[in-house]
Amino acid sequence: MHPADEVLVARYVEEADQAAFRTLVDRHQERVFGYLRGMVKDRDVANDLFQETFFRVIRALNKERGSYTRQGKFLGWVLRIARNAALDHLRARKKWQDLGNGDDGDESAWWDRLPDDGPSALESVQDMEEADLLKACIDRLPPEQREVVLLRHESDLTFREIADMTDCSINTALGRMRYALINLRRMMEEAKRLEHIPASD
């Protein structure tokens, strides 16, 4: 039986059990890294932010900063730290705009907020594997929709937890997820359609 996160945290903090901390990091590395990678769209930057996140975790657990209150939500706490690190990075590069809580339900203008940095995901579709194509489509989602997809699929948070973390209502989180799925499906269909168009040369 695998010990719970709280047990491992207690072993590391009270007994300096390095193996317990290693287990914690191993257990959650994909959830945290997948989220960061999807947010910043760059593996090297995601590596840096991942390291920074766990450095902050170590400092906090060693009581330099006491934000962890052992409420049984270790992953959520770590993801909150990771999110702050990612948003700091994105804000510094002006690639993140803080939104309201989104309770007005207006998601209709999402095309207007599509990030426009880098080549279109659909341009080089013929050279892509399906998984790469899907990742490229995720990267093209509006940031708030992309974040919900990442937190749900990479980090395995529930919609309630996502709503808490992103400071919005659960209806807004669900709405963003729904639009994200619809848009992903549309982009994938478009990509498949382009895949069958012969190159014009």
Partner: peptide
């Protein structure tokens, strides 16, 4: 359909 594709994405790990 969209969720099925997302569920089968391979997860990444840090270096």
């Amino acid at each position: 359909e969209a969720k099925f594709r997302l569920d089968h994405l391979k997860r990444e790990r840090p270096d």
